[in-house]
Amino acid sequence: MGAWAADSFGNDDAADWVCDLDDHSDLALVREALADVLGAEDYVEAPEASKALAAIEIIAAGLGRPTAAFTADEDAVAWVAKVKPDIDAALVKDALKAIERILADDSELRELWEESDSAEEWLQEVATLRAALQPA
């Protein structure tokens, strides 16, 4: 799986995605990551799910509710500080839908984590991220 931690940035796909994000000055890559998960017809592949979780971290931070995983990723923090993304309600709604797809039975990432010894830790990280999207 190329994962070294259960948080949203603790895998190769998310790390590469954050590097790509640095080439953008808007939310286009964030929206694309969500669209890849939401547009999956049957099965959500692990790389797309991992990128979407990293994108959702950017959304939560843009709302002023960063998670510990986000604050630990210097590149993501720097990008949000530089771009100061304006997060609209539709983007938050899509982020919540994407989380549901990632946690569903037809998600490779969920399956991979269920096969690991860290499934509960990963589920808690995703729950924390989902909570960050909710209004206070």
Results as ranks from 00 to 15, higher is better:
Gly10Met: 09
Gly64Phe: 04
Lys97Val: 15
Asp13Cys: 15
Val37Ile: 05
Asp13Pro: 01
Thr67Cys: 04
Asp22Tyr: 11
Asp73Glu: 05
Ser116Met: 08
Val92Cys: 07
Ala49Asn: 02
Val77Tyr: 10
Leu27Met: 06
Glu108Leu: 02
Trp122Ser: 07
Ile87Lys: 05
Ile56Cys: 07
Ala136Asn: 13
Ile56Pro: 04
Ala40Cys: 05
Asp86Met: 02
Val83His: 00
Glu108Asp: 08
Ala61Cys: 09
Ala132Phe: 05
Glu111Arg: 11
Ser107Lys: 05
Ser8Asp: 06
Ala98Asn: 02
Asp106Thr: 13
Arg31Glu: 14
Asp105Ser: 12
Ala46Phe: 07
Ile87Arg: 01
Leu96Val: 08
Glu57Asp: 14
Ala5Phe: 10
Gly62Gln: 00
Val92Thr: 11
Ala132Gln: 06
Asp7Asn: 14
Glu48Leu: 12
Gly62Arg: 02
Asp94Tyr: 01
Gly62Met: 01
Leu103Ala: 11
Leu91Glu: 00
Ala131Trp: 04
Lys82His: 08
Ser8Arg: 12
Ile102Val: 13
Asp12Leu: 14
Ala127His: 09
Ala3Ile: 04
Ala81Tyr: 04
Glu125Phe: 14
Asp88Phe: 08
Ala49Cys: 09
Asp88Ser: 09
Leu103Gln: 13
Ala15Lys: 08
Asp13His: 15
Asp26Met: 08
Asp20Glu: 15
Ala78Thr: 04
Glu125Asp: 12
Ala33Ser: 09
Ala132Thr: 03
Ala81Gln: 07
Glu74Gly: 01
Asp7Ser: 09
Lys51Phe: 00
Cys19Arg: 15
Glu120Asn: 12
Ile87Ala: 02
Glu120Trp: 11
